[in-house]
Design a protein around this nucleic acid. Structure first.
Lengths: 305, 305
DNA sequence: CTGGAATTCATTCAAATCGATCATTCTATC
DNA sequence: GATAGAATGATCGATTTGAATGAATTCCAG
């Protein structure tokens, strides 16, 4: 299942001494477990998470089984986009994953990766499909791959603290595009929220019910497709009414939102991009830029299971 | 009579060397008995207890159990179903994940977990929703959680060898239920295939194109919903035609397949369950019951740098 | 029941890791 | 520039781990 890595490997990969790495572990900066004999073992995810949070450069990525191009080349976002685009069309999931993790380790935030790489690329693939340059199955397979990567990102960057505020997200009826909602989920989780996507294609009244029952601090709605403008507008407005009454902020965004529609709906904030969503979330619930969770005693909590 | 496990299996499952595991046994960390000839044998319970107490991760849960474990499994699976069902409705993702991985750890195959737990539970939740006992968003959230778990299972059982045969899967037009297709993907990957789900809601002609281009050994189609019987039947039959011509086996299954429809479509095999799919796949591409891929040497190759 | 293949045993040895200690380097402050 | 405090890197003996070995045991098919 999860390959466990030894301190020596990690130390060499990061380029610090073994002593230092052990101290970091003991301070709780890298979540780890100990073997029955007291040796430290850590998961790749934990190491990656630490690298991202601490801003450390990776010296020898090969030692962790990671793509080799990380520190040095520093993928430009443009080059990465091209590579990901062709890999997505060709169904080469591994390549996509590698490049994305490359970008992560090179210091790009998930938000930036989504806004500047994945979203444009998926949009472009959608156009290719519309023009007949790509087969339907290729476009759909690209979506599947994208979702897999998103789920992985969700688990590797998951940082949920106990008292984090709750956020719910969804897509309205007839809008079946899951990717943007899930991106929102990953972004929000990444800035410390307990974000949960309820999925796509949900009628407004059930969303209202979910707000009443879960009392989230934030509700985000992604709009990639509008079947009927009038019913969409009434849906959003009824949603906003409940949200407003229960102290829930309503964030809305998406490519299908034209100016004319936008004028007729109510919301707490309009998001042009995931960056906007992240910013708004930060405003609602300010957190220190580098979380550095107080030595959460991961070990003991794990061992007490 | 409880099933006894050998040190070798346990060692590989936990991800430590056999020597170390035996030392732990001798230190009394894992309760065990010895055969008349002095060989160590331990119960699953003892191993699980040790794992919990020491906080060790499971590396290859499959190794701890055999598919034929039928003893008290019924009870366990039933209890697990109840627990998962309520957790899914309540949106408690962590609980679901915990129980599922517990089952894996207890030696159930993913196939069994899907067939006997997840699929019935999701079906039941669907009924609750139809009866108005569950809100729409609860049902949809359950699907989302289920998908996340499936994706995790998919990555944790990534066993793809180079020369593994290719399998493609999808759902036909108007059928938007992703879960069964993805379950098929996980099951097939688990028995050594390079399985890729193309996603839901795909027209037959693009699937035909995908077969022509990727030349898979197996194509599986999940059918959870049929919009129009006649167009469905022609779609499946045209798909089968291409599959047959290119040497691709066509496996089909799903709850929406009534007897009458079934009589009018062609396929290589009909799957009542994922077990059937797994069996068929094994027939197509027999693999040793315990894959035991030549120790992939990830560690040594890394350490030798 | 029997023979051979596969597994496991106990043991040994090299490599890795532990915890602790100490010297060095970095950093912020006066 | 001087200095105190913190982080880092190096080292040491004791412990843990992983791999290899030949002998003993178990398993399975005939």
């Amino acid at each position: 299942m999860k390959k466990m890595i030894s301190p020596k490997q990690v130390a060499r990969a990061i380029g610090v001494s073994e002593s230092t790495l052990k101290r970091w572990c003991d301070r709780g900066l890298i979540s780890m477990t100990k073997t029955a004999g007291g040796h430290r073992r850590m998961e790749l995810d934990a190491v990656v998470r630490f690298l991202r949070e601490s801003g450390h450069e990776i010296v020898e990525p090969e030692l962790l089984g990671l793509p080799a191009a990380v520190g040095q080349t520093g993928w430009t976002l443009n080059r990465a986009s091209e590579r990901i685009s062709s890999a997505l069309v060709a169904g080469e999931e591994t390549v996509v994953r590698q490049v994305v993790f490359d970008l992560l380790l090179a210091g790009h935030t998930v938000t930036a990766i989504f806004d500047d790489v994945l979203a444009p690329v998926m949009h472009q693939i959608g156009e290719k499909w519309a023009c007949g340059e790509a087969a339907v199955y290729q476009e759909r397979r690209a979506c599947e791959i994208c979702m897999r990567i998103l789920h992985e990102l969700r688990t590797t960057t998951q940082n949920t603290r106990e008292k984090a505020p709750i956020a719910l997200g969804a897509t309205l009826e007839h809008d079946i595009y899951t990717i943007p909602v899930t991106m929102g989920e990953v972004v929000l989780r990444n800035v410390g929220w307990q974000a949960t996507s309820l999925g796509p294609n949900l009628p407004a009244d059930t969303l209202i019910k979910s707000i009443r029952e879960a009392r989230p601090r934030l509700f985000w709605v992604s709009v990639s497709f509008i079947a009927n403008e009038t019913s969409f507008i009434t849906a959003v407005n009824s949603l906003f009414e409940t949200a407003d009454a229960t102290g829930t902020a309503l964030a809305i965004g998406g490519q299908a939102l034209s100016q004319s529609v936008r004028k007729q709906i109510q919301y707490s904030t309009f998001c042009e991009s995931l960056r906007d969503l992240e910013l708004f979330a930060r405003t609602l619930n300010p957190v220190p830029s580098h979380p550095t969770p107080p030595p959460t005693d991961n070990v003991t909590s794990v061992e007490s299971l």
